[in-house]
Design a protein around this nucleic acid. Structure first.
Lengths: 333, 333
DNA sequence: CTGAAAGCGCTTACAG
DNA sequence: CTGAAAGCGCTTACAG
């Protein structure tokens, strides 16, 4: 089947390519008559514009790239879905890029900004660390979703995230309210100002408010996958078998921990209470169903887009927005 | 920061753009000396080529598009991951497009083939039905992964899938081997020649070989999500409470079914045995851990790519490859 | 081994 | 309201 170009369409409709381009872009300065004629021809030919040509020419593409770190994470996937829905609603052009957990999303963003004339960036599931420096050269607005960039000195960076510290605090308080005292925390690297650090802080805070301590030996570092969490938990509980509550910084971690407890002959929640973070869909179907801190995914998506467009279009400065989450008590606690 | 073009690089290196282009594309016909000079300049400038310009010019982009239907399905995600790894290994250009379950992936493919000069298509998680007709116009090779297209009259179409019929048969045989006889099947629409149809056929076959019947009233149609499966199962088991085995055409369906059984006061596997299909990672961490038919994701990915490139490069005809799966008995059976 | 030139399919001032 | 022409940043015959 022939692939038609706007030139073909122009010929068939008896107008210039300029006019076809106008119709294609819904410009108002075309007579009703011509517009309809051109549209009919385009429909007949199943015309689809060449995205490369368009992208090449359009100096300001208004396209934003959403870079997602971690294809296998259901929460990040759900967030991505929400962002696409926002973009659809606003008729905004968005390209979604999944990148490997091992890859450097910032270098990737740098390349993308060159190769595709991106005018805005959203990072989903990123960490904020020294690698960010490569972004100092990219002079386009960017927002970090799910992690606060408030501490960083990047000028054109904004962020939208759950109040990690407060919600971690609330999660641990929920464990304390169930009478748990020897509480372990399974999470990421506590260094820096990233979510794991904030969540660790919140957990400590809750413990101290209750008159307890978050013992260092009960902080377990793990990747956010069931497999890693499982191994870490088996190892940890053989060392600290008296632990009676676990706060996991991700639902996937909680999944692995709960299974490890089962294999160690412990019952959840009778012997150990477990609470996660994220609120992934499968959580409510697990046995026991997973208590968790539900992240406001739709709201994070919406606000991320909003903040980005404010920066892109009105040159607004980078805001750092913090949203509340919701503790959802189910069976695992 | 300035975005450099190959023209800038050419000037700085004191060569022509043609030469820069050659270096960029690793063509052999450049002197070692020039090559190194150009590469140094490119590195200094953090040069990244404009993908739009390249795509516009290159008549034969050799790019393949992988279209995935269902962002939230862990199995399809895993499959996508495998395909990207194959592509990386082969230095092949792949663009990954997730599309909504409600969207029409074939129309999308049609657009993509025009707008991006795709030279090959892979559909992941697609159904094969009348909508395919729009593809008859697309004169590029395509392969359907995870579903057999053997029955369809499309010329340039190939497919790589698990032997759905045989593996469904094996799954139901596993239930029978556990002494289950009143077996229900939770799956998709049985019409046509799609995976659900083949799997239903396989299930029926196993029952009949054992001297039993797959009763029509025990075939439950559901979408492949935990939520839908949960509702369907609650409804079904209140009607057919004597059912003692369930074959689910997806692990996510099994997840919902198992939870529904729990909420109905039934124990898995004591009262009811459940087996799924796919072999998603979380399956082994569930309680009870999920018995399933593991699809050979890596092999499906590898062969899909292979078949596609054979068609693209050597004009090979469309093959229809069928791969074995593996029944993995865990706790839910 | 190297370069000048044409052209990929669009968009966008500019002129009418 | 419409069109001729330039140009976006590359690649690719073609000529040397």
């Amino acid at each position: 089947m022939k692939i038609y170009t706007i030139r073909d369409i122009a010929e068939k409709a008896g107008v210039s390519v300029t006019t076809v381009s106008r119709v294609l872009n819904h410009r108002p300065d075309v007579s009703k008559d011509t517009q309809q004629r051109v549209e009919r021809v385009m429909a007949e030919c199943h015309f689809v514009g060449n995205a490369n040509a368009r992208g090449l020419k359009q100096a300001d593409s208004e396209t934003v790239a959403v870079i997602i770190r971690g294809r296998q994470n259901p929460f990040l996937n759900a967030l991505a879905e929400e962002m696409l829905q926002c973009a659809d609603r606003d008729q905004a052009a968005v390209i979604l890029e999944y990148i490997d957990e091992k890859a450097d999303e910032f270098r990737h963003a740098l390349m993308l900004s060159h190769s595709r004339r991106i005018s805005g960036l959203i990072f989903v599931g990123s960490r904020i660390d020294e690698r960010c420096r490569v972004l100092s050269g990219v002079n386009i607005p960017m927002v970090f979703a799910t992690v606060s960039a408030a501490g960083t000195p990047m000028e054109r960076a904004a962020s939208v995230s759950m109040d990690d510290r407060a919600m971690a605090c609330a999660a641990v308080e929920a464990l304390l309210a169930r009478g748990r005292k020897r509480i372990a925390v399974f999470g990421g690297n506590r260094q820096g100002t990233d979510s794991p650090a904030l969540r660790a802080l919140g957990a400590r805070e809750a413990m101290e408010k209750g008159g307890w301590q978050l013992e260092d030996s009960r902080y377990v570092e793990t990747r956010f996958t069931p497999a890693d969490a499982y191994e870490a938990a088996r190892d940890f509980f053989s060392r600290c078998p008296d632990t009676d509550g676990v706060f996991c910084m991700s639902d996937l971690v909680a999944l692995g921990v709960i299974r490890a407890l089962k294999d160690l002959g412990k019952q959840v929640p009778r012997d150990v209470s477990v609470i996660g973070i994220d609120g992934i869909e499968i959580g409510r179907y697990l046995i026991p169903s997973l208590s968790t801190v539900v992240q406001p995914a739709a709201e994070i998506a919406r606000q991320s887009m909003q903040v980005l467009y404010d920066m892109m279009q009105h040159g607004a400065p980078g805001k750092h927005i913090t949203l509340p989450g919701k503790v959802e008590i189910r069976e695992s606690i």
